[in-house]
Amino acid sequence: MKATNSGDRRESTTAARNEIELALLARIAKRDAAAMKELYLLYHRRLARFLTRLTSRYDLAEEIINDTCWIVWQRAIDFRGESLVSTWILGITYRRALKTLRSIGPAAQEEIDVPDAASEQPCEQAELNEWLGVALARLPLEQRMVLELAYHLGHSCEEIAAIMDCPVNTVKTRMFHGRRKLRGLLLALASPA
């Protein structure tokens, strides 16, 4: 019963937040700069953290946020509420981030040999603290995005499917392989060469 109550609570909080954001979008559609500022500041902190982790560069993160919000400004009038406002905004952010990250290309990285058995072992806190950023950066982009959206931003599997515009099973599979590879990378990075 406890789980159901927490699920209900999450749904009602999400619905209330969505109502506020819908009202802001309606004002933005009428070119209300104050509403744009309110929505911008609501999202800036979490998008900046999410994108700075992904890109390792605040200037790129800021550029993606402003590209996203610029599209929100232009397209607020077309938003029909088919999804949550947050899913819509994150979907735009995701596409802009993919485009930016693909345009700058992957950073040159040393190959790490990850033994199969390593990915079955649980991660320890010390490994996480020291190597998480490095290991995440070595994951395939889509797998990393799923992990960041689920764990960093707290989105559900269905919300992530809507954000990434893919089936729910694809999200589950990316999560499965992403976690498996991450565990292997953390153990390989933490082990002395």
Binding site: A33, M36, K37, Y40, L41, H44, R45, A48, R49, T52, Y58, E62, I65, N66, C69, W70, W73, P122, C123, E124, Q125, L128, N129, L132, L147, E148, Y151, H152, G154, R179, L182, R183
Partner: peptide, 29 residues
């Protein structure tokens, strides 16, 4: 183990991002 990973990723880092200057750039654009 997964919970430790979740909590580590969820933890707020020391960085503070100021939204106001970025918003000014957006409005200028």
């Amino acid at each position: 183990s997964e919970k430790r990973l979740y909590e580590t990723m969820r933890a707020e880092g020391p960085l503070v991002f100021a939204g106001e200057p970025s918003f000014q750039k957006l409005m200028a654009r």
